[in-house]
């Protein structure tokens, strides 16, 4: 199970990096969002996956999943959700004002 998870994390990172390296702003934002998803899965995998047990320590529980990484992921998801939506709003505003979403054209000149 860990192996499959690691592979999917790798794929998410790969696609995320590929998208971030493209010129279109929209693709870049999608890339960052995929990258953070990859990171969250990584965090989940790092606590060792155990199937069929809740992340809670009941009385006399035989097996349980470490709850801490799940708490961390929850926090991180909320943050990345907020940041991504802010990024989208900014990108839209920038597109309206600057008239382009091509990063090559967003270099900016000294004399502005």
């Amino acid at each position: 199970m860990e192996l499959y998870m690691s592979m999917s994390v790798g794929v998410l990172f790969m696609v995320g990096v590929y998208l971030i390296l493209s010129k279109s702003l929209l693709r870049i934002i999608l890339g960052t969002s995929l990258l953070t998803h990859g990171v969250h899965l990584l965090l989940l995998t790092m606590s060792r996956l155990k199937t069929g047990a809740a992340p809670l320590l009941g009385e006399g529980a035989n097996s349980y999943v470490d709850p801490l990484p799940q708490a961390l992921i929850l926090t991180s998801i909320v943050i990345s959700f907020g940041v991504t939506s802010l990024f989208f709003v900014l990108a839209y505003q920038a597109y309206r004002k600057l008239g382009t979403d091509n990063m090559d054209l967003l270099r900016g000149k000294e004399d502005e």
Partner: peptide, 30 residues
């Protein structure tokens, strides 16, 4: 215009480094 243009880059670089931060935390916790 200048602020919008620069903010996009500033956000992107910080989102990337934050993702790496969480990844590093994950490895360290593991």
């Amino acid at each position: 215009r200048r602020q919008l243009r620069e903010t996009l880059k500033y956000m992107l670089i910080n989102i990337l480094s934050s993702s790496l931060f969480v990844a590093a935390v994950a490895y360290l916790y593991g």
